[in-house]
């Protein structure tokens, strides 16, 4: 945060910030320890210029990087959680939500928009991992389904960027059933023969991985993203041994036939645009 922003009361500040990436002028790459200049990193879409490590980025930034500039319109922005169980563990779920809202500036863990990709209208949605671990509850499920419906009704391809620990425990069975709900919405989309591209980013596990994230006509992973059903700690506890290096990383999934391709973040726009163009029998989009 700059000194000027610090002086501004937060209510007036309109810029929505995601904290997936540490603040400051210099940022250290978690992978190669290189000290990186922030503006340079931003220009490089938060991919380390030294070692190509893909840092986690927030939902807004993700969509901004992916879609044509100034083309976005949000879908179902007003939806908010109702805390149907009045859930309380060491903290109230309500408080966790408002905390997450303050921290991320988002109402919940998924942002869905319409926009254009190389001028082709599309629907895109992205998980906000900083919002309660990108967990999927009723709002995430409903937003995703509305995005899918918009996509089906207007025959606009759907692209989703997942980053999630899975279902949101505080909504218990409500959240589990979002797996069924989002998958059913994709089944309708599939019947309409509208393309759906799922981009799996670091990390995608649990209920999100076991529903919408794996159901792409094409599943794309960012390099070295952690992707799996069970989290590595759970597996380690279950099998009682350390997991091999690279287990559940994108390259492992590619080897095992779970994802179609691994695409560098800086090439995502072009690659997805060209894929969609082929599915829709259009010439290669010009950038």
């Amino acid at each position: 945060m700059s000194w000027f922003e610090k002086l501004m009361p937060s209510r007036i500040s309109t810029e929505k910030r995601t904290r997936s990436v540490p603040e400051g002028v210099w940022i250290k790459c978690q992978e190669c320890d290189a000290q990186l200049y922030r503006t340079e990193l931003e220009r490089n879409l938060y991919v380390c210029p030294k070692c190509d490590y893909h840092m986690r980025i927030g939902a807004r930034r993700r969509l901004e990087y992916f879609l044509d500039p100034d083309s976005q319109q949000e879908i179902a922005a007003s939806l908010e959680s109702r805390d149907p169980l009045r859930f309380k563990d060491s903290k109230k779920y309500k408080d966790r939500i408002s905390q997450a809202q303050k921290k991320t500036g988002e109402k919940d863990a998924l942002v869905a928009v319409t926009g254009t990709l190389h001028s082709r209208p599309v629907v895109a949605c992205a998980f906000e991992f900083a919002f309660m671990g990108g967990s999927m509850g009723s709002v995430v499920g409903e937003r995703f389904c509305r995005a899918a419906r918009h996509s089906a009704e207007n025959k606009m391809p759907l692209i989703s960027f997942s980053a999630s620990g899975g279902a949101r425990m505080q909504e218990a069975l409500f959240s589990l059933l979002q797996m069924a709900k989002t998958s059913a919405a994709l089944a309708v989309l599939g019947d309409m023969r509208v393309p759906y591209v799922s981009v799996l980013t670091d990390p995608t596990t649990g209920g999100v991985s076991a529903s919408l994230a794996m159901l792409g006509d094409v599943n794309i992973a960012e390099p070295k993203a952690l992707i799996g059903f069970a989290g590595p700690r759970v597996i380690e506890q279950t099998v009682g041994q350390r997991l091999p290096e690279g287990f559940q990383r994108s390259e492992f999934l590619l080897d095992h036939g779970t994802v179609d391709m691994i695409v560098d973040r800086r090439e995502l726009r072009e690659q997805v645009a060209d894929l969609l163009a082929k599915f829709e029998h259009r010439p290669r989009p010009v950038s």
């Binding site: 069924a180 059913a184 089944a187 309708v188 076991a210 159901l215």
Partner: peptide, 16 residues
């Protein structure tokens, strides 16, 4: 062997 995909695909299939 793709536990996630197997579950996701079942959900997808049963819906329709």
């Amino acid at each position: 062997r793709g536990q996630s995909e197997a579950i996701a695909h079942s959900l997808y299939l049963m819906a329709g």
